[in-house]
């Protein structure tokens, strides 16, 4: 069995894994990182989205062996350990979740979206999240939440003023 070394949410793990073990199952069944759920077989739903070396991937469509030597961030690794990440807060404030099953993946995909585009329009948010399905919200409040978080994450005009 290949041995992998993967850092997950700041903790390094060394494990022997079957080559076929999906990263999603490695996280859930081996490491107990059950914050990342699985919703499909075909990488459509995006519920299992995590960051791999800082970029969003669907952890059901990555083998654990492929992630060897890389760094995984899951929903459980967001925030500073004390408070919520601005995206988490915005999802709460904008009622951007109902059952919450898609939420971890949606937030991780949104995080990636804002990394690429810190100030997206509604349309850009909708396109940027097209790899993540939600069956409860109709997406409208998710779009609001991502835009709100974008505002919260960007430097405030007042601060920009002050640094000038």
């Amino acid at each position: 069995m290949p041995r992998v070394s993967i850092e997950v949410d700041g903790v390094k793990y060394d494990d022997d894994v079957e080559p076929r073990l999906l990263l999603a199952h490695y996280l859930r069944d081996r490491l107990g990182k059950v914050g990342t759920p699985i919703g499909c077989d075909t990488s459509n739903c995006g519920a299992c989205t995590v960051l791999l070396d800082g970029m969003s991937v669907k952890s059901c469509s990555v083998l654990a062996v492929q992630a060897d030597g890389q760094d995984v961030t899951t929903i459980e690794g967001l925030g500073d350990g004390q408070g919520l990440h601005p995206l988490q807060r915005a999802f709460h404030q904008e009622h951007a979740l109902q059952c919450g099953y898609c939420t971890p993946g949606m937030i991780m995909a949104a995080l990636d979206l804002l990394r690429e585009n810190p100030d997206p329009s509604d349309e850009e948010v909708r396109e940027g999240l097209e790899g993540n399905l939600c069956r409860c919200t109709g997406y409208q409040n998710i779009v609001r939440a991502v835009r709100r978080a974008a505002g919260d994450l960007s430097p405030k005009p007042a601060q920009q003023e002050a640094t000038r």
Binding site: R28, I75, G100, T103
Partner: peptide, 14 residues
């Protein structure tokens, strides 16, 4: 929301 947005949800498969 507190548990759902932080990945601390208790799904059956967990």
């Amino acid at each position: 929301d507190a548990r759902l947005i932080t990945g601390r949800t208790n799904w059956t498969d967990n």
